[in-house]
Write a protein that binds this DNA or RNA. Structure first.
Lengths: 252, 252
DNA sequence: GCATCTGCTTGATCCAGATCAACCGAAAGC
DNA sequence: GCTTTCGGTTGATCTGGATCAAGCAGATGC
């Protein structure tokens, strides 16, 4: 019996070609043969649980990690126990790209909820990209996309006010979850208010207040970590420099 | 005579192998043959002048650009004429990496002073990296370094106060200029107070006030765009969460 | 040369959001 | 079950830095 079970696990074993994320993740646009080759270097670990580390700041860089299910946060810890949350990562997203240069992780990554993670040993991935041009291109795009994303965050932290920040965050989560086949208007946040605030450069209290305000304005409904958009257009209207009142754009 | 002059220009023509930046720029660690191959795809334009564009937001992405001499700013323009300055780029630094993914520039780049720029058509560079593993590695490192840099900026905008921001900016400029063979303690800023403020998420007035404060504290001497560090250790002490007084680190 | 413009500085005032404080309800521990 | 803990909410107050306003000195134009 047990044996059977193990065998059947083997048969339907996790593999890029069967993975529902293949249109979001690295295999995107790869020929089946090449997916097979990529597959052969991917390591699958047992599921990780809330609080487990993928890697810690200061450790040597060996692998990139891809979220398969669940979610992960990355953050840059500072001496006194403080931290800056750098991102929340959903299935299909790749983690660790910032450590390729120095080969040392400058940030830490821990899972927010029970998660399955694929590990890609970077030296082997690099060899592979040298022989598969489309995979190389995919890697360049991936790294470039990360830069674009960081750029948007710079804009958020440099220019947006608290409401715009939270609205941007929520719409962004909604879109990413929707791409993954989940509802765009009704979803669960795996991170705490504290983590959201830290990520957006806001105090917890401010995050909480703005959730309440959005709710009062009939834009959404919140119950703990469950968020439901009631008026998506209304929320999206907050995004831009939709500067409602006397607010001015800072620094030109 | 004129003919002679042209020929002699040709002889000492700009080339990666003669370039003093080859230890900072893409050719770093490449075999001489490979530098030659890289060289063959680089386009050298005539010098650009203050305000000239390398590319504008919305244009199709075709090439990466490398600063050879001078300096460049990149910024993300918003509808109403506002902008977020994303970076100031010194000789050896590569610009345009964020557009590889979408193949459209999301930001604009203009030179801050008379500058020489190398252009690398990306499709040709990509072909080349597929056949030169060390160049491919160099590209991954380059992209990764850009992500690390953005990450540090996120930390700056998310957690640092005005003094820490300006000190971080100045020390960072100092280090980068020093790497390029210039003085680490006595240098010229090619950007305006306005641009510095925009970059750091501060109002011009705040930047000006903090320059004055640093000067009063004997940390440095400023005369318009000329900066002279008088007490480097003192400036570096402002960097960390060297939280001088009652300041607390925000959000944990 | 003089007039204008532009970038920078300095002072006064204001406000968005941080900080401080108290409370509440769900979940975890016993 | 009860108690403790922890994450979240709400209210009151404070403050760093934005905004407003004015003046000043190089740079630019004529």
């Amino acid at each position: 019996m047990t044996q059977d079970k193990v065998i059947s696990f083997e048969t339907i074993r996790v593999a890029c070609k069967n993975c529902t994320l293949s249109t979001l993740c690295l295999p995107m646009g790869l020929a089946p043969d090449d997916v097979e080759r990529l597959d052969s270097i991917v390591k699958h670990s047992k599921p990780l649980h809330r609080g487990d580390y993928l890697f810690r700041s200061g450790e040597n860089f060996r692998s990139l990690f891809v979220v398969k299910t669940g979610s992960v946060k990355t953050y840059s810890p500072s001496e006194e126990g403080g931290e800056q949350v750098l991102g929340f990562h959903l299935p299909g997203e790749v983690i660790g790209l910032d450590a390729i240069d120095t080969e040392v992780h400058a940030c830490s990554a821990r899972v927010l909820e029970t998660s399955a993670i694929c590990e890609l040993p970077f030296p082997r991935l690099e060899e592979l990209t040298a022989t598969i041009p489309s995979l190389q291109h995919q890697m360049y795009r991936l790294l470039s996309k990360e830069i674009s994303h960081d750029t948007e965050m710079l804009l958020l932290l440099g220019k947006k006010n608290a409401e715009e920040r939270l609205a941007t965050f929520l719409v962004n989560m909604s879109r990413r979850l929707h791409q993954r086949g989940l509802s765009a208007t009704d979803f669960h946040l795996s991170m705490s208010r504290h983590e959201i605030g830290n990520y957006l450069g806001l105090a917890v209290e401010t995050v909480s207040r703005i959730f309440t305000r959005f709710q009062e304005e009939g834009l959404l409904k919140v119950d703990r970590k469950h968020v439901q958009f009631l008026n998506l257009a209304g929320i999206e209207a907050v995004l831009g420099q939709a500067v409602p009142d006397s607010h001015r754009v800072r620094s030109s």
